[in-house]
């Protein structure tokens, strides 16, 4: 027996039941109903509303006359949008790749019976507790070309050191990557560490008895066993990359120029400051499609596995 069926009042012999009993049997649904209704209206209803707006000519205020794919044509003819997509690709790939590489390395180091694990782990993880705005503010100062890292290096005697990525159009997006990786890699480390701890120690012992050196054990046995963690980490990070907005705003404000424009900042500025609501909606729909393509198969498989 894995589930309790609700005591069968509704399904059978309703005529014998009193009103109170029937109300009682409806209670669970009545309790759930408001939350479900809220989700339907404010998530799915609003998504449809946004989709609808993307087919109109809305500018500063919504108008409801449909004009077809006009906004999408305009969206895809914006150099800004291409910049946003390109930046998202750079940011996404580096952010996910670096977080996983660094997270996995630290996790493996931490898994060597480290005595100070209880002190080290919180140090790698605390950035995750910070707001992106705080992270952005801190790194903006840290990377400040005049007074930050660059100056520190000069003071230390490295006169030729130059680090102006924050104001360099070609490099600014990489500062977003650095700050993002700093914030999330500790969390990825924690995921991998949990995965490592979940591996059956007897498998490792068997491999040791078989004569495998430590590196081979990691490469051939442990890392392949961490596959599900890789998948989860990629999904979570990809999702965070597409949604990330605050970090860019706080760190670079999307600039210099439009050098660090991302779809999320594009959507916001076109909708609320440039009065191009239809184009903004269209970009939001594109973002939604991107996330759906990643999340739905993942959720589906996760819920599937649970059942079997």
């Amino acid at each position: 027996m894995t589930t309790i069926e609700p005591v069968p009042i509704v399904e059978q012999r309703q005529h014998r039941r009193s009103f109170v009993d029937r109300l009682g049997s409806m209670l669970p649904k009545i309790v759930l109903a408001p939350s479900f209704a809220i989700t339907l209206i404010f998530v799915y209803g609003f998504i449809l509303w946004t989709v609808y707006l993307s087919f109109t000519r809305s500018r500063i205020l919504p108008v409801y006359e449909l004009v077809g794919f006009d906004a999408y044509y305009r969206l895809w003819s914006q150099p800004n949008w291409y910049m946003a997509i390109k930046n998202l690709a750079i940011f996404g790939v580096l952010y996910i790749g670096l977080c996983i590489a660094i997270g996995l390395c630290i996790a493996i180091l931490m898994d060597q019976r480290i005595r100070a694990e209880g002190i080290l782990r919180p140090i790698f993880l605390y950035p995750m507790a910070l707001s992106f705005v705080v992270t952005g503010t801190a790194w903006k100062w840290f990377l400040n070309p005049g007074l930050g890292l660059e100056k520190t290096m000069h003071n230390l005697g490295w006169e030729s050191f130059k680090f102006d990525w924050l104001v360099n159009t070609d490099m600014a997006i990489y500062t977003v990557v650095i700050a993002g990786v700093w914030q999330a890699s500790g969390f990825v480390m924690a995921m991998f560490l949990a995965g490592l701890r979940g591996i059956d120690g007897e498998i490792i012992k068997a491999a040791q008895i078989d004569g495998a050196p430590t590196i081979a054990i990691y490469r051939r046995i442990i890392i392949p066993l961490l596959r599900p963690v890789f998948l989860s980490a990629i999904i979570v990070l990809a999702h965070m990359a597409i949604k990330s907005y605050d970090l860019v705003i706080a760190l670079t404000g999307g600039g210099p120029g439009n050098a660090t424009e991302l779809p999320s900042t594009f959507m916001y500025s076109y909708t609320f400051t440039r009065s191009q609501m239809a184009v903004g909606s269209a970009s939001a729909v594109m973002m939604l499609m991107g996330i759906t393509a990643i999340i739905v198969p993942y959720l589906y498989s996760e819920l599937r596995e649970k059942r079997s």
Binding site: V43, G45, I47, A284, V296
Partner: peptide, 22 residues
């Protein structure tokens, strides 16, 4: 399951998709 699935997916939508209506 459908109810839960719909509520679960709602966690992951980019909020940009509901910003204007909200």
């Amino acid at each position: 399951k459908l109810v839960f699935g719909l509520m679960l997916f709602a966690c992951f939508i980019p909020f940009q998709a509901v910003l204007i209506p909200m």
